[in-house]
Design a protein around this nucleic acid. Sequence first.
DNA 1: CCGACGCGGGG
DNA 2: GTGTACGCGTCGG
Length: 894
Amino acid sequence: MELKFQLIDCDYTMVNDLPVVRLFGKTEDGRSVCAFREGFLPYFYVLPKKRDEIVEFLKNKYPQLLVKVEEVERYLPIGFSEKKTKVLKIVLKSPPHVADIREELRSSGLIEEIYEADILFKYRFMVDFGLYGMKWVRVSGNPVKTITVKCPAIRCEAVRSIDIIENAPLKYLSFDIECLPSEGMPDSKKDQIILISLSFEPAFNGMKDMVILAKNVSILGSIPCSDEKEMLEKFKETINKYDPDVLTGYNIEGFDLPYIFDRMDAHGIKKDLGRADKICFSQKFGSAQRSAIVGRVVIDPFYIIKYLSVYDQPHKFRRYDLSTVAEKILGERKIEFEGSIRTFTEEAWNSHGEKLKQFIEYSRKDSDLALKLITTHRLVDMNKFIEMAKLSGLLLQDLMAGQAARHENALLYELIKKDVLLPCKPHGKVFSGSEKKFEGAIVLEPAVGLHKDGAILILDFKSMYPSMIMQYNICPTVLVREGTKIDDKECNISPTGTKFLKKSVREGIFPYVARYYFDSRSEVRAQMKKEQDESKLKILDAKQYALKGMLVSLWGYIGFVGARFHVQEVAASITAWGRENITKTKKLIEENFGYKVIYGDTDSVFVKTDINDLEKAAEKGKEIAKFVTGRLDGLELTFEKLFKTFLILSKKRYAGWSFEKVNNGWKDELSMKGIETIRRDWCDLTSKTLFSVLNILLKEQDTKKAFNYAKDILAKLEKNQIPIEDLVVTKSISKSLKEYKGIQPHIELVKKMRQRSPVGVPGVGDRVGFVIVRGLQLMSDRAEDPEYVKQHGLKIDSRYYIESQLLPPLERVFEAIGIGKSELIGAGRQLLLADIIKNGLKKPKEEALMQADGFVCVKCNKTYRRMPLIGKCSDCNGEVTFYLGENRSRSLNV
DNA sequence: CCGACGCGGGG
DNA sequence: GTGTACGCGTCGG
């Protein structure tokens, strides 16, 4: 019989001491299936030093494991050689032993080098058989009766990949647990789970969700169980009955899954939540945790969003808790409750009515939100991840392992075809970071200040690094090393002197895949223009996105010290060619158009013109782009957009009022780089003020107004006219209070709150919002609960907010526009920000404090740029005073 | 200014 | 399971 399915997961089991590969898949009509493949064995290659001794060594030491040693010819991956090299292919019986043998061979002194000895067996199989994660597979064979997997299985002979753009209908199950902690964060060793909520997509027998309680109490819309054990069994039963492909939930990798596994162990429940008779487990490495559930995919929206936030601006949030993320992406929030989560949980658990009901709804919403984050495709688009899997060949659940794994797996398919070996990962001291860094990209010296007369044209090179990789044939496999008898005429020589064979002689593997990604993307985009079907369009869009991702990260992969193909000279050559290119571009523009290039970074140039008309400026932009493109080989400069006004503070820090041509008009927005208007440790007032100031500067080009606006906010702060909500700073309690060595405002506040009342006080893991109030004590002792401040009419410490919250970011902005310049303030008198504060603060001591240039400890002379929050020296706890200018002797006592 | 360190999410 | 994050902010030197 034949089966056609989309590849969800792959693993292997040992049967009679030999591996059997299992492919888990989903058919077009939504059935779960499994295919067994016997007879595939692990292998790797060595470049021998002492050929015969290696064979002897293996035969003697591993008579049970060794299948054969075969001499074959392959190209070595690093450095060009015309001919293939004789290497030994070592075939073994058992995948788990490969690592041991690899290490023994490494330390034996018998080998020169070892290759492909650290590839997961599932990927060894998949790559060798041309299978890719989430691509479609056709197998033929006979059905087998088995209890080792929970879905229909066949033993197959023929396996092959087939190209189908559509995806099988996947089933998603989201869940969320609630625990009853004794103190701080719940501890799976002692604190039980009291409730599990589940959400289904599509519905499970008509149910959209389900809440299971570890308590025998009838509450409408929930399933009672006699205890935790019965609840966990019900949970497992539900998973196995519903049979989801994707298990999801917010931070389930880091919390819910390991917690559930521990509790199942505690009750002696078998942890077979996957599609096979295999025990699930969760593994910790560093501070991260991963769970494995065979046959299914664990997708944690928390991980995904954090991953996306690295690359995409739209996914950068102030915080990544479920409420914030759901609000931004879905426009929906978590259910709110009064007081701390601990009291909420305790009260719910001790009640039988309203409170418990409310708690159930709270949990139901959490699992529902997590599900929606994955399935609504708004920003977290599963299509994108599916396409990345199809491209790299990685299984969906392994995508987040990193860029390097994606490239290496994708490269392996091509390397095999070309008889080139894949290097092992760097090991030992190479990876310890001792390697000196190479020179990176160029950042042109910025013309600091506000630019407003004449549009600024933003031009950049379309995928500059990939283009260079293709153009100069940059690749470790065609790296021409010293002593090779290759004529320089056959090489591209980088500005750093590194030589690469010309493409016409032999194309390297990196240029080859770059070209493949590049061309495929063009094809996909052409297809998109013809495609009418909405869901197919989405998939095509996801595909071009995935292709772009692979293309642009190719060079970063070569530069990554942990990469199998990391060769420093190669990475350095790319950046060197990039720097040369930008420098040439700047020169071409300045000499031929008479405009100044006022900034540029890596692959872009910012050109200041004298043209105010948007259309005319855009025309000029296109003209410059065309001119430069015609004078550089294989690189295309494009006119991206223009800034009507542009404020640059320093390298990597700027804001601009940008205009981009769309279908029938101009789209404008404020674009910012490096000037963060959102930061965790800033209160809302800081973010709002900074944003408004930039807005006025750029859109109204009114420096005076911007200045007055800032001044007005400071004055309002003085007069207590700022709503307290805008002044709240939030920090979280990461450990028990005793463990804190230093003095921190939010910790001191919690201690204070405990003294006032034992109930409703935040504990470990909670976030504490606080404001700093006026008073004579140390700063940290003046952290106060905003509610308490309101109730008791306390005054906030305006000085703290000016000095520590508002001034630092604002100062940087005003500094850049040159406060001293006459146009700024009518009278022409230099007005420094400090003057404003002086006007607002009347006490001489405070005035002096505001003008302090630094702070110094009277006991040990340690200096600080700012007054330490605790008011004392952090080293010796001595008194801290301030000083003016460079001369510390002028310091006064505070 | 630089490197070590530690945190995030979750109840 | 032939594997083992990562980017950012703080602090101490």
